[in-house]
Design a protein around this nucleic acid. Structure first.
Length: 487
RNA sequence: GCCCCCAUCGUCUAGUGGCCUAGGACACCUCCCUUUCACGGAGGUAACGGGGAUUCGAAUUCCCCUGGGGGUACCA
């Protein structure tokens, strides 16, 4: 049991739930479930300035909506609480002091201005920006002087140079980085007493007994820094896995700054995307199950997931492909489920005018044509509108024709022959009228659609007539004929 | 600038030295089904970035180049 697999998603609440974060969470979740291990949620909120509760809520809600449920986290607790970094600042400082007393870290009295100056100088002489370790060997009188000036020190970790830091990455394979490329001795505790990300993660991952760190490849250099800290603490190292990033169509990292709401998971929820589709899409982008299946559920993915099948190269976020997955799930999930999820989009309509089974019929006849659930509003509008407004172009093209008038007239005459409880039978009557008038195809169906729906595209005509029922069909055909008369 | 990562159709990918005349999916186009719409079905267009090397044989291994991306904070 000592070998239990433990992974985590550790978002920082400095923004809403990002598609990339969701993908990382998904990979961690899949890995944990596949290995019968634990999936931990931890909040990395040490950046007080940018963190907010609104973002925390958005992230938690979003991940839960995707069904990526964690076994331990700030909301449900767990054996290694707290799962929120701001609640353990003293804890990090304790470890930092340990490093100071063992000579592996020191106090740095540099001011923000001095550091900025240093960086500017380096830039001007086209040198690589890095800290010059000037506080590493301060003598007592220098320290006294800085303290007398009222400077509050930060703590820096000594980065020995040169040396090679290497690890076997579970996705990328061998990675090696020279310590000289890490930018000099690194801050581990800010002068305000709060641990910096690269230090806090290590302590947290240690505290929470994390065995595998699965994250985006933008963290590769951080990993090198963190490995140094593991070593200094003489602590066991987790296995690292860096997944390639998600790109936009221009092959740039998907970012809030550039893409705004398009990276916000909740935006897709609002737009009527299904969590099953997003999960399926995100999972199959950069990962292919052994049987090459395209469509699979979260549970199926859990059973098949493996890190070494995760692609090393970045994937472009392709909304068209997501749309295809979404349409697939809209068509294949149980109809009751679709109705429940569609309801919020239909709230503007007077649903009471239809019985429950008619409502079900409405949703099932329009769902084939939907790519997102939000489209259901427009797709079903004509069912609920009191009067149908036929757009000018449709009116022009169709209702001005004599044959159109004949069709509508005939339907009125044959109204008693319609068995409105049976969609196929309704369609059969229209077919019969077509035969009588020697009209077929568009000439036959478009005028009926135009009169009934106000448009020439729509769900199955038989179903439409059946659901609308005798009185609605009668009045809509009559209004259309009135319109014909005026043209 | 420096460091690291990556490189198969427009996009997501299969491919781990011969099964590749490079397979599948999305998108696009054509056709079929539907006397309309959608769903569905059948086809089609379309890719191994370039150069060396290893080998009887390279999409697959190695090197170089090119291209793309990421990182380079007292942010995470």
């Amino acid at each position: 049991m000592a070998s239990e697999i433990r992974v985590r998603i550790a978002p920082s609440p400095t923004g809403n739930l990002h598609v990339g974060t969701a993908r990382t969470a998904l990979y961690n979740y899949l890995f944990a479930r596949n290995k019968k291990g634990k999936f931990v949620f931890r909040l990395e909120d040490t950046d007080e300035l940018r963190s907010s509760d609104t973002y925390t809520k958005d992230i938690i809600d979003g991940l839960k909506w995707l069904s990526l449920n964690w076994d331990e986290g700030p909301d449900i607790g767990g054996p290694y609480a707290p799962y929120k970094q701001t609640e353990k600042v003293d804890h990090y400082e304790k470890y930092a002091h340990k490093l100071i007393s063992s000579g592996k870290a020191y106090f740095c009295y540099c001011t923000q201005e001095e550091l900025t100056q240093l960086k500017d100088d380096q830039k001007n002489s086209s040198m690589a920006p890095r800290y010059d370790n000037r506080c590493r060997n301060l003598n007592q009188s220098q320290i006294d002087k800085f303290q007398a000036e009222g400077r509050i020190p930060a703590m820096r970790f000594i980065v020995e140079e040169p040396r090679v830091i290497s690890w076997h990455d579970a996705i990328k394979g061998e990675i090696a980085i020279n310590s000289s490329d890490l930018g000099g001795d690194m801050v581990i505790v800010k002068s305000n007493g709060v641990a910096i990300y690269n230090f806090a993660v290590v302590i947290d991952d240690l505290d929470m007994k994390i065995t595998h760190v699965i994250r985006g490849e933008d963290h590769i250099h951080n990993t090198a820094k963190q490995i140094l800290i593991y070593e200094a603490l003489d602590a066991p190292m987790p296995i690292f896995a860096h997944a390639a990033l998600i790109f936009d169509i221009e092959r740039q990292k998907l970012s809030k700054r550039k893409h705004g709401e398009a990276v916000h998971v909740d935006k897709y929820k609002k737009d009527g995307y299904m969590p099953e589709a997003i999960i399926n899409y995100l999972a199959q982008m950069s990962w292919t199950p052994p049987n090459n299946q395209e469509i699979f559920s979260l549970d199926e993915a859990c059973a098949l997931f493996d890190l070494d099948k995760v692609s090393k190269s970045p994937a472009v976020f392709d909304i068209q492909r997501l749309n295809w997955f979404n349409g697939h799930y809209i068509r294949s999930l149980p109809i009751q489920e679709i109705i429940t999820r569609a309801l919020p989009y239909l709230s503007g309509y007077d649903l009471g005018q239809y019985k429950q089974n008619e409502l079900e019929a409405i949703v099932s006849c329009v769902r084939d044509g939907l790519t997102t659930l939000s489209e259901i509003k427009e797709a079903t509008q004509f069912f609920f509108d009191e009067t149908i407004i036929v757009p000018a172009d449709v009116k022009e093209a169709l209702l001005s024709k004599q044959s159109s008038k004949d069709v509508l007239q005939k339907i009125l005459e044959h109204l008693s022959e319609f068995n409105f409880g049976d969609a196929k039978a309704c369609k059969a009557v229209v077919d019969k009228i077509g035969a009588e008038l020697k009209l077929k195809g568009k000439d036959l169906f478009f005028p009926v659609r135009a009169a009934l729906c106000g448009k020439t595209h729509g769900p199955d005509l038989g179903s439409t007539i059946s659901i609308l029922g005798r009185e609605r069909v009668r009045s809509r055909i009559e209004s259309a004929l009135d319109l014909c008369a005026k043209t």
